[in-house]
C-alpha cells in the first residue's frame, strides 16, 4: 500500500498544501509570485465584488440542489415502489447517464435550448410564430444543466434508505390513524434524511465549484466561483488570489460535509428510537 500512499501524498496532499501556502503570498508585479506573507487575498475574497459572485454561486447551486433533491427523491421513491425485480434495472438506467461524458451531457442542452434548437422547433410545430425564446445563456439554463448532470446521484443516494425502509413502520402509522401525508412527513421522510443529505451535499459541492456549465450554458455571463478560480490561474495570472478562492471553496465543502454528518447522526438516532419503540 506504500506506493499508493506515496502517490497520493506527492500528487494530492503536497500540491494542495502548496495552494494553501500560495494563498498567503502576494501577486508579483509581472504576474509571478512575490514571496511576502499577507492576508490580502483572503480579504479580497470578502470584497463586495467577489462576495457577490460567491452569493450568486450559492444561489445557483442552492436552486439546482433543491430541484435535484425534489425530483430525485420522487424518482427514487417511485423506483423503490416498483416490483422488486425491476428495481435494479431502473436504478441502473437512472445512473447510467451520469457515467457518460459531462461535456457531452452539457452540450446536449445547447442543442435543446439554443434559438434554433429543438425546443424552438417544437414550439413552431405547435403553431408558435413569434420570436424564438432565449433560453440558452440564462441562469435557468445553467440550473437546468446542473440538475440534469447531477440528478442520477441524488436518485442513487435517496434510493438506498428508501429501499431499506421497514414497511411495517408506515403500516403502523396508518393503523394508528395518521393520513398518508402525515405518515410520509413524520415517518418516511425523517428516516430517509441521510440519503437526502448525501445527495444534496453532492449536488451543492459539485455545482458551486463548477466552471464548465456556467461557461457553456451561461455563455460566460454567469460567473461562479469555479470560473473565478479558472480566470485567476489562466487569464488574470493572479495565482495567490486564485489559491485563496480555491481554499474558500474547500472551506465551503468542509462546512457542508459537516452539516451532512450532523444530519446523518441525528437521523441515525431517530432510526434507533423508532426501532426501540417498535421492539418495545
Amino acid at each position: 500500500m506504500a506506493p499508493a500512499l506515496v502517490w497520493l501524498t506527492a500528487l494530492m496532499v503536497v500540491p494542495c498544501a502548496l495552494v494553501l501556502a500560495l494563498a498567503f503570498f502576494r501577486r508579483g508585479i509581472y504576474g509571478g509570485i512575490d514571496y511576502t506573507f499577507t492576508f490580502e487575498n483572503f480579504g479580497l475574497v470578502f470584497d463586495p465584488l467577489y462576495a457577490g459572485i460567491f452569493l450568486n454561486s450559492a444561489r445557483i447551486a442552492g436552486t439546482a440542489t433543491l430541484i435535484a433533491v425534489v425530483v430525485g427523491y420522487a424518482a427514487a421513491y417511485a423506483i423503490a415502489a416498483a416490483p422488486r425485480r425491476w428495481q435494479p434495472i431502473f436504478l441502473f438506467f437512472a445512473v447510467l447517464p451520469f457515467w457518460s461524458n459531462y461535456l457531452i451531457r452539457t452540450y446536449a442542452w445547447i442543442v435543446l435550448l439554443n434559438r434554433e434548437g429543438l425546443i424552438t422547433q417544437l414550439l413552431r410545430w405547435f403553431g408558435y410564430t413569434g420570436e424564438p425564446p432565449s433560453m440558452l445563456y440564462t441562469e435557468g439554463a445553467v440550473i437546468a444543466g446542473l440538475v440534469y448532470n447531477y440528478l442520477p446521484f441524488v436518485i442513487l443516494a435517496c434510493y438506498a434508505p428508501l429501499s431499506r425502509l421497514n414497511p411495517e413502520l408506515a403500516e403502523a402509522s396508518r393503523d394508528l390513524g395518521a393520513s398518508a401525508a402525515t405518515t410520509f412527513r413524520r415517518v418516511i421522510l425523517p428516516l430517509t434524511v441521510p440519503g437526502i443529505a448525501a445527495g444534496a451535499v453532492f449536488v451543492f459541492v459539485l455545482s458551486i465549484g463548477n466552471f464548465v456549465t456556467p461557461a457553456l450554458l451561461g455563455g460566460g455571463r454567469f460567473q461562479m466561483i469555479g470560473n473565478l478560480v479558472y480566470d485567476q490561474f489562466l487569464t488574470a495570472n493572479d495565482w495567490p488570489f486564485g489559491a485563496a478562492l480555491a481554499m474558500a471553496l474547500i472551506a465551503i465543502m468542509l462546512l457542508v460535509l459537516m452539516a451532512q454528518a450532523l444530519a446523518a447522526n441525528r437521523a441515525a438516532g431517530r432510526a434507533a428510537e423508532a426501532k426501540g419503540d417498535a421492539d418495545g
Partner: peptide, 10 residues
C-alpha cells in the same frame, strides 16, 4: 470528493 478545479490548479 475534492472539487476537480481545486486538484487541477493544485
Amino acid at each position: 470528493i475534492i472539487p476537480d478545479i481545486v486538484l487541477a490548479i493544485a
